[in-house]
Design a protein around this nucleic acid. Structure first.
Lengths: 208, 208, 208, 208
DNA sequence: AATGAATGAGACTTCATTCAT
DNA sequence: AATGAATGAAGTCTCATTCAT
């Protein structure tokens, strides 16, 4: 390994250490109380050095959120191959989404509460046409279509249904994060019920 | 009116002025940037005097959130009398909830993202037994029962359903708040679809 | 004295203490090295309190310059009543200007080197029409006119002459400030020669 | 060319690049905001390397000022050969000085405001005997002598006159730099009047 | 010759809070 | 009831400089 690659790797590691420290603080005291000083203390360096790796605090926060969001979407995307049955696919997707989100609670909460243009740009899914632009909504839409073969589906309604499902899942997830002291058993019960039954009910058009 | 009651009333007014100022700041610059100084500037008093009415900043924030939550639940409670039809009741409740929440977006978002014990104490509804302790969940549960007369309902499942509906509604509301630049027409379409159709579908047990 | 006036006076005193401290620092280490911290240390208060009296550092610097400039112009204005002889008036004005400036060397140097609009607004005197707008130039112009009774004076030239004299005087003053280690005797010789002879020569039109 | 000389030349070039970068920064954001980092960024090297060529920041600033001053005096020196007429020589020298100075406004202003020993060492000219040690003063003195052939000139007075002229010219130049938004026409008028008429009047002893 | 990591000091500023009046 | 003075902690950031490589 050349000196340069080694240096780059070290720098990369430092960056990750900084982000990790920030993440920790976020999980302990809340995202809003992340500070350069606290990060520095955690990584046992002076605050100044942080500016060697990030140009300012904002960049750190951005990357933090981005990495969180990325993790979520990638793990979600990988879940689609699991089943051929649309109902099960929807179930698994929902469950995966919730479980992955619960691994990065603070970032998830922030990402989905933040309404700054920069974040919204990535996270919005209520706009008309979201089922084309947002992979997750698209995937849900496909499940819905497959689950209602005999129906004459109006495109707009299907999208609205998919969006509702996504919003509902996100809502439950946020609530699970906020109520972090909920008993494990109850937590499991809710996740099971929601992803196994509720979500399917939402996706299935009521028989006439 | 005695001098004392008058004083009390004045004090009450001052408290409300302070909270109102805080609310304004929250809506303008975000909840996190509420500061004693800014409040003082807004009410045109010195920062010190605020400590006459509140023992510290936290108390102000708490009461702010509480009042926001209160407004929401009271307006919700009043909606129940509107209809005798459980389906319509659920529809109206949902719509009312969303609309009222959109009037106090910042506080709503905060209340439902905050996971500090003090807030959670009031806002949690995923715990087992919530349909007894939480008016809103209780009301939803009643609607569900009325809407599924012929079913043999397992108590636990009904509560889980009610909780899911509540979480879903909250999720959609949060998303609507975050995506504040959504077009009005689309916003309306989503609210209509969700409260008129989606929520009913969630509440109705699928025929066997 | 009412409590309020007393408070105001105290506040005024504090402001002046702060400015005095700043002035001292400026004279010791240079204007550029004035810092809130150093001021605080000098007045034996915490840095924070300074923001009680000035909204930021800039305001302090501005007032510092302004006060320096003010002192100069007022002392200059008072010199005009001394003599009825225009030649002597010019001499005295010049001398007064130099001597007063040497009492506030740093501020003088700054004020007359600074080219920021805010400062220039007050200190510029090379523009056309300056003999109407600038008291000092106006006074010099009057001396020139009185000193050249038999000449047919072209207005524009008189102003240019006045401006040249002002610039020359300022230049010498600046140089005296910069060369602060100049021997007193030599310093005196130069000031004497310049204000007694040179300036008169500049003001007198050469006989044809 | 030997390797060594080549190295030296490279080193020399690097030094000049550094100084050039510093000069640019000075002209853009002001002399005071020159920083090692900014220089480094401009020459596209790391800050550290600068310490290879200069032992610290101060040395850079010093050389910067010195080089500016040098440029000025050399261009001044070259003007003397233009005319045999002492009056015209003085005129041309004055004009050249002003014009050259206006090409390096920031450095000129700094050089002539700075009172640190290192700078003063080069720029002072008010001391007794300056007409021997300072080329410019010497040249002015010679012009004065040539312009007043019939006078019995007292040596001291001639030097004082030369010094006054130099200070006056410098003063006008500084003022022209500070009032950078002065209209071009007016600027020209002043420079013309000062160098064509004023300076001659200063140099010529009044007839008895 | 050149780099990148690191430091420590210091810059301005905002904040919540206390206290005497 | 209300003020104004004051503090101390914390915030972000910039800087000159050193050192090992």
């Amino acid at each position: 390994m050349s000196i340069q690659t080694r240096r780059e790797r070290d720098a990369q590691k430092m960056k990750e250490d900084i982000l990790a420290a920030a993440r920790e603080i976020s999980n302990q005291d809340g995202f809003a109380s992340i500070s350069i000083r606290k990060i520095a203390q955690k990584i046992e360096y002076t605050p100044s050095i942080i500016y060697h790796y990030f140009s300012n605090k904002e960049e750190i926060l951005e990357q933090l959120l981005e990495s969180g969001y990325l993790k979520l979407t990638t793990s979600l995307a990988s879940s689609k191959r699991i089943s051929d049955n649309p109902e099960d696919t929807l179930r698994i997707m929902t469950r995966t989404y919730i479980e992955e989100a619960l691994k990065i609670p603070e970032e998830f909460a922030i990402v989905h509460s933040d309404s700054s243009p920069n974040v919204i740009k990535h996270t919005s899914f209520l706009f008309e046409g979201a089922s084309e632009k947002r992979k997750a909504i698209h995937m849900i839409k496909k499940c819905i279509i497959d689950m209602n073969p005999q129906e004459e589906l109006e495109g707009g309604k299907v999208e609205l249904t998919a969006q509702s499902i996504a919003a509902a899942t996100m809502g439950l997830t946020l609530k699970l994060i906020a109520e972090k002291n909920l008993e494990e058993a109850q937590k499991k019960k809710i996740i099971d019920y929601f992803s196994d039954e509720m979500v399917v009910r939402m996706a299935k058009y009521p028989g006439k």
